[in-house]
């Protein structure tokens, strides 16, 4: 079910919520960039499975991403951290699940899980590399080091996203923020990682496994 929540910035943001006012309320912080699109169906299916296991969940949009009315170019890791903290407060989250790059911006004071946390520098490196390869195909030479320098000072367009200088610098330095949350690996879900696939997919079995791990952990 779609719901809105008050986010710092000009307008409310959207979230997919399964909310029956139950005691365990899980905030899901999605991956960044293309991995968010690739995992969306997987995460919403996980929410459905959690719902059947008696757990409420909320999957908010990061400002500037998905259906958000805010411009992507105005975002930074800081704005995403503030937004996820605001979402956690608004929905009264008791636990958090951060996925991949979501581990860079989730509210660390909540107990919970991080799924295959990604380093900011790895995410940035992949985006820079895609741009260098695209330029090369078009007969232009660019290199990652120069682009990174330009991005840190002036911002940069990478893979169709306009990254602010703050976002480039933030990603370059950021490491997963987990402090005592349980780190989950892909092997625990079975199957191959959905965020790797060039086309978005879904895998009900992986969603069911993830939901079961969360429900068991939380009960224990």
């Amino acid at each position: 079910m779609p719901a809105t929540w008050p986010c710092p910035g000009p307008a409310d943001e959207l979230a997919v919520v399964f909310d029956r006012a139950r005691p365990v309320r899980l905030l899901i912080v999605p991956p960044l960039f293309e991995e968010m699109n690739r995992t969306r169906r997987f995460l919403v299916e996980t929410q459905r499975q959690l719902d059947t296991l008696g757990i409420d969940s909320m999957l908010p949009d990061l400002p500037g991403c998905n259906e958000s009315p805010q411009p992507f170019a105005a975002q930074s890791l800081g704005s995403w951290r503030d937004a996820m903290a605001a979402a956690a407060r608004h929905f009264g989250a008791t636990h958090v699940l951060a996925v991949r790059g979501g581990a860079l911006v989730f509210p660390t004071s909540l107990p919970g899980w991080v799924l295959e946390p990604a380093k900011g520098a790895s995410i940035l490196r992949q985006l820079l590399r895609a741009r260098v390869l695209t330029a090369r195909e078009a007969g232009r030479e660019e290199n990652s080091a120069d682009l990174l320098e330009q991005g840190r000072n002036h911002g940069l367009e990478l893979a169709g996203y306009q990254l602010s200088a703050a976002l480039v610098a933030g990603l370059d330095a950021a490491v997963p923020q987990d402090e005592g949350q349980v780190v989950l690996r892909q092997a625990a879900l079975g199957g191959s990682a959905l965020w790797l696939r060039s086309e978005p997919g879904e895998d009900a079995a992986q969603s069911a496994n993830l939901a079961r791990i969360i429900a068991l952990d939380e009960g224990g």
Binding site: E34, Q126, R129, L133, E137, A159, S198, E199
Partner: peptide, 12 residues
């Protein structure tokens, strides 16, 4: 399937 974004993902 192997466009530049996919190559970048593959290399990483």
């Amino acid at each position: 399937e192997l466009d530049s974004m996919a190559v970048a993902g593959l290399l990483t």
